[in-house]
């Protein structure tokens, strides 16, 4: 019985690190696998869980460093001083933040409208239409900002692609006939 209680943290640790291995970037995957294998040599179950939590943050930091290095290469950030780099990063993050905020606002409006007007079976179609409209707006914003505020445009574009993919997968899994 005691074993059942203490084994739970280890199970969580294994699941957590397995997920990290599956979802980590190529550059970090070997390290994530190393951490997962090392888990089997840790005797304490709680110690294993804390090990896994620490490893997860380490992989997240490593992956985000790799991502930003890739990002800088892709969008022409040169080694021309941290201030400039920081400004561009802030611009890109602002683009990401604005896109996410606009999407959340749109979803709140759709769901509130559903609450008040009861769209019934129309809700999936309205969500699809609003998502498409949002994507068009984001692309328009990217085009408008590309020349003068490129980092922000890149942030919007990146987030719009991610959110668009998310919506497409969600709609195909939940609302389309199989």
């Amino acid at each position: 019985m005691e074993r059942g209680i203490v084994a739970a943290p280890r199970k969580i640790a294994i699941k957590l690190l397995s997920a990290v291995v599956r979802h980590s970037l190529e550059e970090s995957r070997e390290w994530a696998s190393a951490m997962l294998e090392e888990l089997q040599f840790i005797e304490g179950d709680w110690e294993a869980l804390f090990w896994a939590l620490g490893c997860t943050t380490a992989i997240f930091r490593h992956s985000s460093r790799s991502f930003w290095a890739w990002f800088a290469r892709q969008f022409g950030f040169k080694e021309d001083g941290m201030n400039n780099f920081q400004k561009r990063t802030a611009g890109a993050l602002a683009g990401v933040g604005l896109t996410i905020a606009a999407t959340i606002l749109l979803m709140i409006i759709v769901h509130l409208s559903d609450y008040f007007f009861d769209f019934a079976g129309w809700l999936p179609k309205i969500i699809i239409t609003m998502s498409a409209l949002a994507e068009v707006l984001f692309v328009g914003a990217v085009i408008a900002l590309w020349r003068k505020k490129r980092p922000m445009a890149v942030g919007i574009l990146f987030t719009a692609i991610l959110l668009g993919t998310h919506f497409a997968v969600y709609i195909s899994n939940h609302h389309l006939p199989r």
Binding site: A34, E38, F50, G54, C55, T57, A58, R61
Partner: peptide, 22 residues
């Protein structure tokens, strides 16, 4: 050396040790 052994010998947690090794 193994990661866990280094962690035990140095007293560093995995969240500190692995970024250093990386």
């Amino acid at each position: 050396k193994y990661g866990y052994d280094i962690s035990r010998n140095t007293g560093l947690k995995s969240g500190t040790l692995y970024p250093i090794l990386m």
